[in-house]
């Protein structure tokens, strides 16, 4: 599909465009104050990385990354919105914890990346164009890597079961908690009209009134 051995000017230009977009959107993730925006900006960043993979000739890997990241970020958005304070950025807030430490760690990692990029030795074995990479991937999965592949399947089923155990109502409270779909929820005496800025102390099993982790600092 793409001649990787002698990239055309289109490939060069596209690479820089995608790379810049990936970095920019990644940066915006930490500058926005809406959880939904942050999640989908992260998705945009991943999509651009996927596009770069496509430019590198990863016909399956690139598209698979686009596909996977899209649904995973969507699911992440559900959880981010559910548990984060101020989920839509109605009031301003900062998105980073421990900014000094984070900045220091970021610079160290960035420096490390630069060192590897400049002084590291990269393999120089471009694939010839038209090589059936997807067929080779499939053969590999059916052959030598069968065991890895199957154990991944088992691990993912364990993940499925584990996530259900942790999250479903019945698993957490057992039959005793009742599984009547329309069991009336516990009532709060006031119609949710707490004075603004006051945290209602309604804490039971579910963590405190403002969603456990109290994400972000006051601005």
């Amino acid at each position: 599909m793409i001649d990787v051995s002698s990239p055309s000017v289109f490939v060069h230009v596209s690479f820089w465009v995608f790379a810049a977009a990936a970095v920019l959107s990644g940066w915006r993730v930490f500058r926005t104050d809406s959880m939904v925006r942050a999640t989908f900006l992260l998705l945009v960043s991943f999509l651009n990385v996927g596009a770069i993979l496509l430019l590198l000739g990863g016909a399956y890997l690139g598209v698979a990354l686009l596909f996977m990241m899209t649904v995973e970020m969507t699911v992440m958005a559900i959880f981010m919105v559910a548990f984060m304070m101020n989920p839509a950025g109605l009031n301003p807030m900062v998105m980073v914890h421990q900014p000094r430490l984070a900045a220091a760690a970021g610079w160290v990692l960035f420096g490390g990346g630069i060192v590897v990029a400049v002084w590291g030795r990269f393999p120089d074995r471009p694939l010839e164009p038209g090589r059936p990479v997807i067929v080779e991937l499939g053969t590999e999965l059916m052959g030598r890597s069968m065991l890895i592949f199957e154990s991944a399947a088992v691990a993912l089923v364990a993940t499925m079961i584990g996530s259900v155990v942790l999250s479903s109502r019945r698993s957490r409270y057992g039959e005793a908690a009742g599984d009547d779909g329309s069991l009336p929820p516990p009532l709060d005496p006031v119609l949710g009209t707490y004075p603004t800025g006051v945290v209602p102390e309604t804490s039971t099993d579910g963590g405190d009134g403002h969603g456990g982790d109290g994400h972000g600092g006051m601005h």
Binding site: M1, V36, F40, L43, A59, Y60, V63, A64, L66, F67, T70, V71, M73, T74, A77, A88, V133, I134
Partner: peptide, 28 residues
């Protein structure tokens, strides 16, 4: 006519979910 055509199609479907969700979400 890309090599991973049906995977790309899957990406279109999943991004469509994002588009529809965003359309409903963003009106507040």
């Amino acid at each position: 006519d890309v090599e991973a055509g049906i995977v790309l199609w899957g990406t279109v479907e999943s991004l469509a979910i994002v588009a529809i969700f965003l359309h409903g979400w963003s009106a507040n």
